[in-house]
């Protein structure tokens, strides 16, 4: 059976199920709201630990990646074929990227950057697989209005099994939802990226060399020493204050990096989900344009996260310029 016929059969099966449901479920079914919530939906509750759909998706992404890696490296040959070839090309491309951004230290940064890139790209794309969106749990929030942070749209529902309270909103929580739309995922990546950057910086420059970037009191000390000996130089005071101020800005920018990493990934992918949901009310194949855009954005965001991590690590491990000049 050709793939085109397969698609046709699957589509017919869906339509058949919908028709059968209309026939065999006689009661009036309520409209189900497709939703994009800021907060990920809980699927199961394991002794107080709620397993969310984003967590599930990140596990699937991990499984996909590990499966791919194991398949690629199970029996490695000097002349690669098949999966090994593709995976090696991918890894080599990331390695080249790491070496072009990080120079000779690129190899050290490579594993974490590659993991970030692969995980973000795979999990972003997993959330975009057509058909995963509408397959999910229908949660009934009996007697409650839609919780905050939810955009809802009424969609024609296909599967409906649960009893419901009339008038209560029924929300479709998909099993698979892109982890980047859950703020915890980008935040964890950002934390790892920034913390590792600090660790690499300390490793490369030594503790005082690295911390000296943020707390730079050398010229201030020169001024104070001069003042004690009765020869206060105003220029030293000015530059000392400037150094301290610049150090503070650097410190703040490290925290800003976490925020910008987090909200860049979260904002891009979450906005993409909202856009896709809204655009799905356009007619015919017009939403496909936005779908393609989101695929592109999902891949680019992974690339960007990786490149920025590499760039920050590279900057953090390079000695400070003012130390070289004096």
């Amino acid at each position: 059976m050709s793939s085109r016929n397969k698609v046709l059969v699957i589509a017919l099966a869906f339509i058949g199920v919908a028709v059968a449901q209309k026939i065999f479920i006689p009661f009036e079914t309520p409209a189900v709201s497709a939703s994009v919530a800021v907060k990920p939906e809980t699927l199961f509750d394991l002794n107080g630990f709620e397993i969310t759909n984003t967590l599930l998706t990140s596990w699937i992404a991990m499984l996909v990646l590990i499966g791919l890696a194991v398949t690629a490296t199970r029996n490695m040959k000097l002349v690669p074929t098949g999966v090994q070839n593709i995976f090696e090309m991918l890894i080599e491309a990331i390695l080249n990227l790491a070496e072009s951004v990080g120079g000779e230290r690129g190899r050290k940064f490579f594993p974490v950057a590659a993991t970030i890139l692969l995980l973000v790209v795979v999990s972003n794309l997993l959330g975009l697989i057509p058909g995963f969106g509408p397959i999910g749990l229908i949660s009934l929030e009996k007697g409650h209005a839609a919780p905050a942070g939810i955009v809802t749209f009424d969609i024609p529902q296909i599967f409906f099994v649960e009893e419901h309270e009339p008038g209560a909103p029924i929300l479709l929580a998909p099993f698979v939802r892109s982890p980047s739309t859950d703020i915890n995922f980008p935040l964890s990546l950002a934390l790892i990226s920034v913390v590792l950057t600090q660790i690499f910086g300390v490793q490369a420059l030594g503790f005082f060399g690295y911390v000296g970037k943020f707390i730079n009191v050398r010229r201030m000390g020169k001024f104070l020493g001069g003042a004690l000996r009765g020869k206060a130089v105003v220029g030293d005071l000015m530059y000392g204050l400037l150094d301290i101020f610049v150090g503070l800005i650097e410190l703040v920018s490290e925290i800003g990096k976490i925020l910008s990493f987090t909200f860049r990934l979260f904002g891009n992918i979450f906005a993409g989900e909202v856009v896709l949901l809204i655009m799905s009310f356009l007619f015919l194949a017009l939403p496909l344009i936005f779908y393609g855009l989101e695929v592109f954005v999902g891949a680019i965001q992974g690339f960007v996260f990786c490149v920025l991590t590499l760039a920050f690590m590279s900057i953090a491990t390079t000695p400070h310029h003012s130390e070289e000049q004096h």
């Binding site: 955009v151 860049r264 904002g267 906005a271 960007v304 490149v307």
Partner: peptide
């Protein structure tokens, strides 16, 4: 260029996130 674009775009994304936060009553 991508790095530059990303830094620039981050500002727009921040605005978008703030917009969502306001719009979704967060």
């Amino acid at each position: 260029m991508f790095i530059g674009i990303v830094f620039t775009e981050a500002l727009g994304i921040f605005g978008l996130v703030i917009s969502f936060l306001i719009g979704f009553k967060i």
